[in-house]
Write a protein that binds this DNA or RNA. Sequence first.
DNA 1: ATTTGTTTCAAACGATTGTTTGTTTCCCTT
DNA 2: AAGGGAAACAAACAATCGTTTGAAACAAAT
Lengths: 217, 217
Amino acid sequence: MAHNDTVERILDAAEILFAEKGFAETSLRSITSRANVNLAAVNYHFGSKKVLIQAVFTRFLDPFAEGLSKTLDDIEAAGKEPELEALIALLFKEVLKVKPRGQNDIKIFMRLLAIAYAQAQGHLRKHLQNIYGTVFRRYLKLVMVAAPDLPLYELYWRINFMMGSVIFTLSDFDTLDAIGQAEHQQKASMEQTMMRLVPFLVSGMQAPRPEDMPERP
Amino acid sequence: MAHNDTVERILDAAEILFAEKGFAETSLRSITSRANVNLAAVNYHFGSKKVLIQAVFTRFLDPFAEGLSKTLDDIEAAGKEPELEALIALLFKEVLKVKPRGQNDIKIFMRLLAIAYAQAQGHLRKHLQNIYGTVFRRYLKLVMVAAPDLPLYELYWRINFMMGSVIFTLSDFDTLDAIGQAEHQQKASMEQTMMRLVPFLVSGMQAPRPEDMPERP
DNA sequence: ATTTGTTTCAAACGATTGTTTGTTTCCCTT
DNA sequence: AAGGGAAACAAACAATCGTTTGAAACAAAT
């Protein structure tokens, strides 16, 4: 219990503080202090702060990627070709499945993703791409089938447009919801906002191709 | 020439380094070193690093907000009610107008926006909101007219969905374009990508309202 | 030419950072 | 009960951070 408990307490504290302030702005001392753990424990168990950051991501993304992979297995086994809306909603369901122990885990998860993208840290990005690239490509193939009239290159960019909407909105959900309450006297939940995202994304993906944009310039 | 030159050289160096590495990861020494300026110059001319960060944003956003404001003046003076597509394309044109001295200024501009959102720095966010909130609200009113069948609260969230796509995609344009070249042997420009964004965003905004989502729960 | 005020500069400040060290404590095996 | 390897600990490490200092260099005005 001793070892494992310390490692997980560090990860718990780290993911919260990283999501709140970012990587560079979060000191190891603030992490170990929140975790009620000795300062040296981080370097003892992880080796360095950089590895700790990667470990935080791994703990989130591994179950997510595994869950997504299994869902894709089921789809392919059933020989189904899901529609665009189902494919997008699928991703949200998968996100909601991850780590049901805490309520605000999804917010942390999304904020970490946003920070990872905002900070073009070479080592982190390639680390994630190397590990989770395979599952992502499997998912992308299904999107291709669901939107057959879209050239591959166009689809590539639209996928990124989608990622932008989702990550941006959900990672800043608390702030955006607070503004929404102040200006419209309505509050939203994360699940509601995901539901709101689906039709926006589906319609965006089904949009006609941009004008004056040759497929191969 | 002495004073003004130093201040602008600091701003030039700061915006590049901030866009590359973020705020906390960029030291004043790296800024002053790149600007060929003494270390103390930052605190002498700006007072603190925090003020320098705000100054970098101001130099970008002031001309942008002013240009947008004038464009909105013209529209209102002409009594026009632009369509959604025109309103969205308008924003991109306004962005392209800002700071024509350098080619990659837009990339820096977008990266700074992304970093500003990712790092929930309280002081910066309120600073921006207080200064540029007025222009933004004027623009929002035009969008309201262009999408009359959309409830205000729904529109609020979709505006944020749009912002997410744009900021996310364009701030990471270099990386995304590099991947696009590797996987599809096609390269894009920032202007092309903006053109690609327009139909995606327009269709997203015109999407049907999400199911099971009462207007006032 | 002298004064006045602004800007630049080298140097140092205290604080905080990630990491390392050597020792102590704990737990398990024999 | 004794031994040994893993873990926790207080303390210190060198490096870097933003900021401050006081003197030097400069410009413009009297």
